[in-house]
């Protein structure tokens, strides 16, 4: 049996669970799975700085998306606008508490939590402090990741707009543009960051610190 740290040289593909032995990569190159062509890991020296900038931009656009009108509709002179706060007011008015609670977590708390945790994590890694906290943040992020549904909310928005197309005048609000912007940034961030790479950088920055 080989030693524990030897295991760091191995990687298991997330899609087909094939075991690979890692090779040293040049800067700005990527390694793919030989079975199913999924990205395994990549080597990029300024990944943290670049992603940190993207996360800050994404936070600003998410703030705009949550605070301004998403769409305004006009049905024969009657006007109504969709904002995040009006969403919750209407849900509470209709007494749909379960849906409201799920909605609150999926659309508001988790996306904000993910962005904030990513920001804090990358910032801590950049300055190279608080090894234990950044480790906890990495674990927290892995738990939060499957519950982020901003992209699905956006598709639903488009479906709702198509449904209303015949009966109402639809006007896109500031937040709608901000939503598209947040989504694009979100896709780039998730494409850039893989947990495997983050953990590799983490152990490189802080060394093998064992807090127990």
């Amino acid at each position: 049996m080989i030693k524990e740290h030897e295991l760091d040289k191995l990687i298991i593909c997330k899609k087909c669970h094939t075991l690979h032995e890692k090779v040293k990569l040049e800067n700005k190159t990527k390694a793919y799975c030989s079975e199913c062509n999924v990205l395994l890991y990549q080597q990029d020296h300024d990944m943290i700085e670049r992603t940190l900038a993207l996360v800050i931009t994404a936070s600003i656009s998410l703030f705009v998306a949550f605070n301004f009108n998403i769409i305004n509709i006009n049905i024969q002179g009657l006007e109504q606008s969709l904002t995040l706060s009006s969403l919750f007011v209407v849900i509470l008015e209709h007494e749909q508490y379960v849906v409201g609670l799920l909605f609150l977590f999926i659309i508001v708390i988790f996306p904000i939590g993910i962005l904030f945790a990513t920001f804090l994590l990358l910032f801590l890694m950049k300055v190279g402090k608080a090894a234990y906290l950044s480790k906890r943040l990495l674990i927290l992020l892995a738990h939060l990741k499957p519950w982020n549904m901003v992209d699905i909310f956006f598709i639903s928005l488009l479906v709702a707009m198509v449904k209303l197309f015949d009966i109402a005048n639809i006007e896109l609000g500031v937040a709608f543009v901000a939503f598209i912007f947040t989504l694009i940034l979100d896709i780039i961030i998730t494409k850039n960051l893989s947990f495997h790479d983050l953990w590799a950088i983490h152990s490189k920055i802080y060394g093998q610190i064992d807090e127990e």
């Binding site: 109504q80 909605f103 639903s156 449904k163």
Partner: peptide
């Protein structure tokens, strides 16, 4: 594919906010 089934629920919520006269 799991979370994609939420689309219908979200659409209903969005419609209920917009059609609220």
């Amino acid at each position: 594919i799991g979370p994609w089934s939420m689309v219908d629920v979200f659409v209903v919520i969005i419609l209920s906010v917009l059609i609220h006269f």
